[in-house]
């Protein structure tokens, strides 16, 4: 377990270093672009000016690309954390957080939870003292907000993490791909 947790903290330090370098690059790019623009204004056709513009362009492109890479790393970490929380038996926390992230209303959260527990529309309607049509409409809105096709996919959204073989914290291409798919 200690081996795992030290690996986890190593995973956590990587984005920190990436972010620090990204900011350094950004600040350097601003200084360099400021200098290059000054030189360009003095003499737009000088070879130095053109070279400086090229370097400035490369710096800016580097900043943007590092940013995207950092975001991918952070999303991978978040997925791993959610997976671990699910595995630790904190599924109800994971569900509550995810419902909030999808922007479900309190009523939709209740209905969504009951649906996850396996109750069908008539049961949910009876429990909540609502019309079946209302519950059906709420479920449709929940699926739309979660971006799933229906109840089976809705339930699978939360179980899927547990069925992966990457419960160990190994960085995993599949996880990253799935995160990208979800966001």
């Amino acid at each position: 377990m200690t081996g795992k947790s030290s690996r986890a903290s190593g995973d956590r330090r990587q984005p920190l270093a990436l972010a620090a370098v990204l900011l350094l690059q950004g600040i350097a790019a601003v200084f360099f672009v400021g200098d290059a623009v000054g030189d360009m204004l003095l003499d737009p056709t000088s070879p130095e000016g053109m070279l400086e513009s090229l370097v400035a362009l490369a710096l800016v492109a580097g900043v943007v690309l590092s940013g995207l890479q950092l975001r991918a790393a952070l999303e991978r970490l978040a997925t791993q954390e959610r997976t671990l929380d699910t595995a630790r038996g904190k599924l109800s926390d994971v569900i509550a957080t995810q419902f909030q992230a999808w922007g479900l209303t309190p009523a939709e959260r209740d209905v969504g939870l009951l649906a996850l527990k396996g109750l069908d529309v008539s049961d949910i309607a009876a429990l909540r003292g609502a019309a079946q049509g209302t519950v059906r409409a709420q479920l449709t809105r929940i699926y739309a907000k979660a971006g799933v096709s229906g109840r089976a996919q809705f339930g699978a959204w939360f179980v899927e993490d547990l069925l992966e073989d990457d419960l160990t914290l190994a960085p995993n291409e599949k996880t990253a791909a799935r995160t990208a798919e979800r966001s």
Binding site: L16, A20, L23, L74, D93, I95, F99
Partner: peptide, 24 residues
Amino acid sequence: RDLDRGAEAAPLPPDPWDPLVRIS
């Protein structure tokens, strides 16, 4: 904290600040 938290309770406190937000 875990016990009194049903799914209809408030979600977990967010844990939102990524390293770039913090350093900047």
